[in-house]
């Protein structure tokens, strides 16, 4: 299993333990598979994604990413995991405004010391970024920016790709186009995808769907 979440609970500091964000969530994701997690705002789906990305800490249970149990990792080891095995795509793109498209795409792979220019060029090419490579983020449209973010995530060839409403800022048509491109690339690179969305239609494009309600999988 690339991702295995077992009985995880999470309460935010200062929060009443009875109203925990996650109350014993378990799920599994195999290599190369895609999984969509849906739920209303505040259902805890983003939190679960952050936990899977080793961005945040959980209270109990265990999360295993590519064979590594997260609960026992130090801050530095968690950073190393993000650098080399896990990629994230967010609703807000999170590009570096001062880097060109090309440099943005290469950045994560370079940080993980896994940059392959040929693969990078292919990813950019297939996402239609070839002509935009020397532009800066503020010169791009929202759809273009999200494609840069996806290219950056996949240029790493991550074991696990985590996506949080990747098309949330896009209109419907570009949203479908971007999703299709991402899924195609995910399949070709053998990456497992864990996607969080509130959109049933997007969720349906993936192999498997789960629904989160009040911190529990339903």
């Amino acid at each position: 299993m690339v991702l295995s979440i077992r009985n995880v609970t999470k309460t935010y500091p200062g929060q009443d333990p009875t109203s925990a964000v996650l109350r014993g969530v378990s799920l599994e994701l195999a290599a190369g598979r895609t999984l969509a997690l849906t739920g209303e705002s505040g259902s805890g789906k983003s939190t679960l994604l952050h936990l899977a990305g080793a961005l945040d800490l959980f209270d109990t249970g265990e999360i295993t990413v590519a064979g590594t149990a997260l609960s026992s990792l130090s801050d530095r080891e968690r950073a190393a995991l993000r650098r080399t095995k896990v990629s994230l795509v967010f609703q807000q793109f999170n590009l570096i405004p001062s880097l060109s498209v090309e440099r943005n795409v290469a950045l994560h792979a370079q940080l993980g010391e896994r940059w392959d220019p040929k693969w990078g060029a292919e990813v950019m090419d297939r996402l239609g970024l070839a002509d935009l490579r020397s532009r800066f983020p503020d010169q791009l449209s929202g759809g273009q920016q999200q494609r840069v973010a996806i290219a950056r995530a996949l240029a790493l060839r991550p074991t696990l790709l985590l996506a949080d409403e990747p098309t949330g800022n896009l209109d419907e048509s570009s949203s479908a186009k971007v999703m299709a491109l991402m899924l195609e690339l995910v399949r070709d690179s053998g990456t497992a995808l864990f996607l969080v969305t509130h959109s049933r239609s997007i969720a349906s494009m993936l192999d498997q769907q789960l629904h989160l309600h009040h911190g529990r999988i339903e």
């Binding site: 950073a79 993000r82 896990v86 994560h108």
Partner: peptide
């Protein structure tokens, strides 16, 4: 600020 968050998301440790 946002860049630093992104970089951390991409796996740079705080110390670094």
């Amino acid at each position: 600020r946002a860049m630093l968050r992104t970089l951390r998301g991409l796996g740079l440790s705080l110390r670094l």
